[in-house]
């Protein structure tokens, strides 16, 4: 039953390529999370404080991001927008898709975080003479950040995992590179097994770093 010859040599030989590609994966995921945090913050604030079209757009964004598959979102930015003559590069497709998705999920986390901070704190800060901007950036957001730190970490892990879908829109990150190399040597199983290990290690490193960061950031 087990008469398959594993050939790992082509994989070892292309390990440098795979490591380089994992840097691309990290890059796009980190960029998407940073943008996602900023956009998600705006979405959460708009949904809580505004009325009218701005709020509808923010709500539609969050619900669409949360209720459709990521792959669908990538296809939409990749092929759907082509109908209007917008042709994004594979990198932009993945970046925009992941940002759209992460922003939607993070917005809900931020909303929960903001709701957990009592209104009275904002009012107290304002009556101490802080401007609204100061009150938010110095009193409310630092506390919210502490609450959403863990969800952000999870989202970062998700972004790394989701970026693997880049291989379906022609992006040469870790998965795309693996597919490319595998189709060249036809050692699909070996290549993807090694890639799975690399993803596992990346995820573990992210979790470890975030835990160390949390120890540094949130000590009293």
């Amino acid at each position: 039953m087990f008469n398959y010859n594993f050939q790992w040599r082509p994989v070892w030989r292309s390990l440098p390529d795979l490591f380089e590609a994992s840097l691309v994966t990290l890059q796009v995921a980190a960029l998407a999370i940073v943008l996602g945090i900023l956009v998600g913050l705006v979405l959460a604030l708009v949904r809580m404080n505004m009325r009218g079209p701005a709020r509808w757009i923010a709500t539609a964004w969050v619900e669409l991001a949360r209720n459709t598959p990521v792959l669908f979102q990538l296809f939409f930015f990749g092929f759907g927008l082509g109908a209007f003559g917008w042709h994004l590069t594979p990198f932009t497709i993945v970046l925009v898709g992941l940002t759209f998705n992460s922003a939607g999920y993070l917005a809900e986390n931020f909303r929960g975080g903001f709701n957990a901070i009592p209104d009275t704190q904002l009012r107290a800060a304002r009556s101490l003479g802080m401007t609204a901007w100061q009150a938010y950036t110095r009193v409310v957001i630092p506390q919210v950040f502490r609450l959403v730190y863990h969800p952000i970490t999870n989202q970062m892990v998700w972004a790394v995992l989701m970026s693997s879908l880049g291989m379906l829109v022609g992006f040469r990150e870790l998965s795309g590179e693996t597919q490319f190399l595998a189709s060249r040597s036809y050692r699909i199983f070996e290549y993807f097994a090694v890639t799975a290990v690399i993803y596992f290690v990346i995820v573990k490193i992210i979790l470890l770093v975030s835990r160390l960061l949390a120890m540094r950031l949130f000590r009293y």
Partner: peptide, 23 residues
């Protein structure tokens, strides 16, 4: 933990290509 830390798409491709190896 492995199944939560490896992208689903990699799991799918891996299993789809592993099944014939296992017969």
């Amino acid at each position: 933990d492995v199944f939560r830390s490896v992208p689903l798409i990699i799991q799918l491709v891996l299993f789809y290509n592993m099944a014939p190896i296992l017969g």
